[in-house]
Every structure is written in C-alpha cells, then in structure tokens.
Amino acid sequence: MTSVTRVMDENEIRRALTRIAHEIIERNKGAENLVIIGVQSRGVPMAQRLAALISTIEGVEVPVGSLNVAMYRDDYATRPARTVSASQIPFDVTAKAVVLVDEVLFTGRTTRAALDAIMDLGRPAVIQLAVLIDRGHKELPIRADYVGKNLPTALKEKVDVHWTETKGEDAVMIAK
C-alpha cells in the first residue's frame, strides 16, 4: 500500500519558478545570451515555464529547446530501450549560457548524460542546472545551480511532479 503526500502545491511551484527565474537573470546579468534546454521528457514543461517567466521579466525572447539523452545514458543495460523523440534545439549552443532544466535531481546520471549531449552540439560558454526538486542520493559530483525545493527522501520513495500542461495541475507528490 503506497501513501501519497503532496509536498508542493500550485502556488509554491509558481513562487519557486519565479525565484529561479530571477536568480538566473541575476547570475547571468540579464537574458541576452541565455538559452534554456529542458531534459526530455519531464524537464520540458518546466523549461518552457522558466523561459516564459524570464522573457516577461526581461522583455527579450529566450530560446527554449528540448534535449533527448537516451543515446547518452549509462544505464541502458538495466533499463528498457524506450521510444525516443528527437531533440528539438533550433539554435546554436556555442558561446551561449545554457540553463539545463530538469524537474528532479536524483542520482545525477541523467544530468551527466545531458551534459555530454549538449557538449556534442557545440561549446557553450557556461552550463547551469535548474531543478524543481533536489531529492538527494547523488551518485556523481553534480549539483544544481538553482533549486526550487530541497526535499530529503528515502531511496525507495518516488517523487512525482505534475504539470498543468501534462497532468492538469501543478503539484509535487511523494509516494512511499
């Protein structure tokens, strides 16, 4: 029997994203050289939200893309090969400040794969990582530059982020 607890609601998520948007602008001294890339498939809605927020705040269009990391994973021997949809990165990443976006930072292995995938697309000036939830248990020396909420979890627990775009509401749930 699993029990589900809501750990962030719509308002908390909105506030976290707004704060992260401001932090990104502040750290990068504006948005002119910024591009946002969401890790497929779950990081994509958050990347779009952040890009929209930054565009509104700064009044410049921030390019946003999505990145498929399936071909870069190191756990293919233990996980099923999944249907992969192509990366959508309609811009050059070279010399850009890339903000890589994923909803949950867990072991860090997806981020590692995403870093390699971006490096194969060009040579960014800097890559920063934004996540909604940092749940701990990292297996690699990777940390997020922007975190919506630090959420200590047990290994067996499952963190589930809902976005209005895909699941009809904004919420973060934790299942034990």
Partner: peptide
C-alpha cells in the same frame, strides 16, 4: 511504428556536427 519513430529521432544525430553518441 516504434522502429520508424526511433529512426526519426536517430536521424537528428546524423545532422549534427558531432555524429557520435556513446550509447
């Protein structure tokens, strides 16, 4: 259908400057 969908996304790699993935 699965194979064709996967092929579409694989094609993406062919169009890149670095045509190499480690999978």
């Amino acid at each position: 259908g699965l194979i064709l969908e996967t092929a579409k996304s694989s094609k993406d790699i062919l169009a890149r400057p670095v045509k190499k993935v480690p999978i």
